[in-house]
């Protein structure tokens, strides 16, 4: 993967993101992936003059993840999406859709958690 990759933790993520903002970086988006049982990886992609920087956070899914939407308002949407897709909680989300951004009550399974496979519909 091109670009600089920095690892962050629960405690440092908001500070690092704030640091990026002060540096004039643009938050591109957050990407997620399964990082083992009960853990997920979150990548915060930044851009400045076409140079990419990634922050990597490996998070426990049962704990609320610190939200960066207070720093970058634009993170609000993607954090809500992650909340929908992984059923994780965010701490300090500025506009919390509470798992209704994309999903309706009819959808009971957690879409992206690995232990839940999609059964083809009839």
């Amino acid at each position: 993967m091109k670009g600089i990759i920095k690892d962050v933790t629960f405690d440092t993520v908001v500070g690092e993101v704030m640091h990026m903002k002060n540096d004039g970086q643009r938050l591109v988006t957050l990407s997620t992936y399964q990082a083992g049982e009960g853990k997920m990886g979150i990548l915060y992609h930044f851009d400045k003059e076409l140079e990419t920087t990634h922050l990597r956070l490996v998070a426990d899914m049962d704990k609320p993840i610190p939200s960066v939407s207070g720093v970058y308002f634009s993170a609000m949407l993607v954090e809500n999406e992650i909340r929908d897709q992984w059923d994780v909680e965010f701490d300090g989300l500025v506009l919390d859709f509470n798992r209704t951004l994309l999903l309706d009550p009819e959808v009971t399974q957690v879409p992206l958690a690995s232990n839940v496979k999609i059964a083809p519909k009839n």
Partner: peptide, 19 residues
């Protein structure tokens, strides 16, 4: 593929819209 993640331009442009 283990994970395919797509962030499209409109997704990024919705916060500006709300602004």
């Amino acid at each position: 593929l283990d994970r395919l993640r797509i962030r499209t331009p409109t997704f990024a442009n919705i916060p500006p819209l709300l602004h």
